[in-house]
């Protein structure tokens, strides 16, 4: 029989996890209750972290911190985030429908470790770090966090408590594009987030992260290396697309074939890159 515990503070939650390591953490429940659909009586013991106020805050400024319990809707609707990290808000706005976005949380989107998680690519290109709290507190770069579908570096007694990143600079711009079967409620067939740094009409730096085309949300380092430093009017976009298509390892599943994903990822990336370049300076005021 399922047990239920809903601590009001993080320290109580951490203490409980030390004692009950088979306990599953529940927050929004939009993944956990789907996974246990029609076998709710076989739910593991649950610890509901939904009452922990300290995990619900968004801190803005040069260093941004978003609590694990912040919902997709709160990210999508947050005026400061919309202005400074629009790609992250676009990712959040494309999760499920309103009912899912009102319950589903940032932390849940990451710990579930779906290769299709909508928040992972935009956060990874921001260079985000996740804070894991257990017997001690550790910071893990998001790029090192995912180990495979449903697998992360987290230990059983750890709770993902925060995501942190620096505010993008004035000469940076970002974009997130998602390809799905429908405009709404779709899990990504392929997705891509790009952040660019433009300096003196050159692509001084860029970061690319793709979803749904590899076992984990994937940084495309080789494609970044190929395009880095190029003049904006002489970008080798076709070569970039080819490199990107060589770098990913998509599979066949119900949302699309590997071949389709590989083909679609190229132009999807090209559009995101051009959008990110267009967004440089547009969203940076104050």
């Amino acid at each position: 029989m399922t047990t239920y515990f809903a601590p009001s503070t993080l320290s109580k939650a951490v203490a409980y996890m030390q004692e009950n390591q088979t306990t599953k953490i529940i927050a929004g429940g939009t993944d956990l209750l789907v996974a246990h659909y029609q076998e709710l009586d076989r739910l593991p013991g649950l610890m509901d972290i939904g009452n922990i106020a300290e995990l619900k805050t968004i801190t803005t400024g040069q260093e941004v911190e978003i609590g694990a319990l912040v919902t997709h809707e709160e990210i999508a609707d947050h005026p400061w985030l919309q202005q400074h990290v629009p790609a992250l808000c676009q990712g959040a706005a494309q999760v499920g429908g309103p009912q899912i976005r009102n319950r589903g949380t940032l932390g849940g989107n990451l710990v579930h470790a779906s290769p299709a998680a909508d928040l992972a690519p935009p956060l990874m290109v921001l260079g985000a770090v996740v804070e894991l709290t257990g017997s001690s507190q550790v910071q893990v770069p998001l790029e090192e966090f995912f180990k495979g579908p449903g697998k992360t570096v987290m230990e059983p007694n750890q709770i993902l408590t925060k995501v942190k990143f620096s505010k993008p600079a004035a000469n940076q711009g970002g974009a997130y594009l998602k390809l799905g079967k429908r405009k709404a409620m779709a899990i990504a067939t392929a997705s891509v987030a790009v952040i660019v740094t433009v300096d003196n009409n050159r692509l001084a730096d860029l970061r690319i992260c793709l979803g749904s085309v590899a076992p984990v949300p994937l940084r495309a380092h080789k494609t970044e290396d190929l395009l880095r430093g190029q003049r904006l009017d002489l970008l080798e976009l076709a070569a970039g697309e080819r490199q990107l298509q060589a770098e990913i390892s998509p599979i066949d599943d119900i949302r699309g074939s590997a071949e389709y994903r590989r083909q679609a990822a190229g132009p999807l990336f090209r559009r995101a890159l051009l959008q990110a370049i267009n967004n440089v300076g547009v969203t940076q005021h104050g």
Binding site: V34, L46, Q99, R103
Partner: peptide
């Protein structure tokens, strides 16, 4: 499974799928 919205109710003013919320939550 939270796909169809037939079970939508408002919880503290927010629309939620009541099939994906435990009563105790």
């Amino acid at each position: 499974k939270g796909e169809c919205g037939a079970c939508t109710v408002l919880m503290d003013g927010k629309s939620v799928a009541s099939c994906l919320v435990l009563a105790i939550q």
